[in-house]
Design a protein around this nucleic acid. Sequence first.
DNA 1: CTGAAAGCGCTAACAC
DNA 2: GTGTTAGCGCTTTCAG
Lengths: 338, 338
Amino acid sequence: MATIKDVARKAGVSIGTVSRAFNGYKDIPETTRHSILKVAEEMGYVPNINARSLSAKKKPNIAMLMSGILEERRSDEMPYLLMKGAFQYASKSGMNIATYSIDSKLQREKTYDQFCYEHSLAGTLLFGLRTTDLYFKSLQKSAIPCVTVDVTVKGPLIGSVIIDDAAAFEDLTEYLVRNNHRKIAILYGRRQAEVTSKRWQGAKRALDRHGLTCPKSRIIETDFDYDKAYQRVRRYLECFGTSDATAFLCMSDLTAIGAMQAIKDLGYHVPDDFSLAGYDGSNITRYTDPGITTIDQSPLEKGYAAAQLLSEIIADPKAARQLVLPHKLIARDSIRKI
Amino acid sequence: MATIKDVARKAGVSIGTVSRAFNGYKDIPETTRHSILKVAEEMGYVPNINARSLSAKKKPNIAMLMSGILEERRSDEMPYLLMKGAFQYASKSGMNIATYSIDSKLQREKTYDQFCYEHSLAGTLLFGLRTTDLYFKSLQKSAIPCVTVDVTVKGPLIGSVIIDDAAAFEDLTEYLVRNNHRKIAILYGRRQAEVTSKRWQGAKRALDRHGLTCPKSRIIETDFDYDKAYQRVRRYLECFGTSDATAFLCMSDLTAIGAMQAIKDLGYHVPDDFSLAGYDGSNITRYTDPGITTIDQSPLEKGYAAAQLLSEIIADPKAARQLVLPHKLIARDSIRKI
DNA sequence: CTGAAAGCGCTAACAC
DNA sequence: GTGTTAGCGCTTTCAG
């Protein structure tokens, strides 16, 4: 493979000049730049990124760090779409992003700063990060800019992209109430999760506004997953039948699907006997029968926005900020007016 | 961040010695190595990968190149699971993998070799590659080892990981026949796709074996996607009702789901009126009602095996080979015995 | 055993 | 304008 030296020799100039031609320096005549670029093109020369980032900070290396990908912890769809969104921005803007998995083992072995140094990173996108991740707190002390998605970390070089979880869940709750549901059972997420309490706040706001309450009996705990939701809802229905609630408001799509299966298995019908709301906007909700009303988390847009925000922050640290993306309610047939 | 120089100074040795300590050279006394490693540990030193790969070929950089991720072309689940599998192997074996998106724009802009040179890659994993990708043919001429998944490229340094698509589809067809289905409609995939013809071969083999045929009327063309499948099956049913076929054999899960919706929308029932088979093993098929019988493509295992195979090939080019992973049929309630 | 030194490919001062 | 040169951080001969 041709190196800068080969190009220089063939073009009859020094390597310094070739470098200048490639880096958009304006103190070089257009004719020279052109002929150099042409020679390089002919030889199939492309600058080596490692060498480049070794010698200078230009064309910063940036990376997506995906946490939790090895663990079974969330749907496969969300992180993929975040990544896709980031790659879309990268492709459009000519930025080059690499993706790495940062599992908990890795986080234990080397610090965030060490990882960045190891890979000569000038900035990172953090996807799937939880507050319990070892890297979570490191971010603040680091001098390397980053953008987190779905969680917020305060720090001068830290941006974040989120949706307003509380407001979104409030909307969803409101939507149920508007459809005259007054006895709503809530499928709670993992207790420790930040999003669980946020969503609960939103539900609370909507219920309060309408003078409604949610007694303990109607709070059904899950881990955001299918199995637990299925079992809990099944037990709930065996206990209360249709007497205690008219709708299930779920903190994730997967729990909604579990709930729906339990409802069906006990001979009830969605939405005739029970209405059902999910949360996340995952693709599956389009294909269930009936389709599930849910909140679109816009992972694609989040990934895109995160990459964009990061490049802004790298260009100017003052650009660091929290971006709140709009959420949207996707109405489907799982909720009926009563 | 500490560099090798800092460590050398603090440990009272030369940088060469530090380097040796880190690279497992045996010509250095255990005591020296230990004290160096200890100092390094204290300083939080980690070798810079770029510098390392610039100066030598050791600890080769390897990468997953994901094609088609920006295009809408396939389910989001498959490529993600491939990636996950590769990361699993990487984490387990201490190998460090970066993921890049190689969209068609990028493939047009720089050749495969250029891309590898640019990133100092010693080997690549190719996910989502199609025969129409520009990089597809480049692989053979390249001196850089790679492993492809789901497609086969011949070349001395090229490995591939596949499942036997024809055999898998044959099994699926056979399964329908065993359940006494003799009039089977086939939801065909994209005409140009290699997998389409392979799966067709498999179906043919099973049908032939039982003296069955599949008249043109029962071949329904799709693009592997939901919408087209829905429309085509709907039209088919409006035309034939239950008179022409007892089962739909689909070349992808998404088309199966489209077909199922069409069946339901016209007032028919799965599996009472029509049995249904999908292909891919995507998660959605677990959650539909009824669950869909399908073939598990094992993307996780493929990714894992691909990463493993690549590291074998890099260690010894003679290890290059084609790996055929076992497929498995997942029986669910969408098929009934008649 | 270990230090010194020559690069790996590239960028960025610094001269001319 | 453009060549020269000093690194970037690391590995690897080559002496000794």
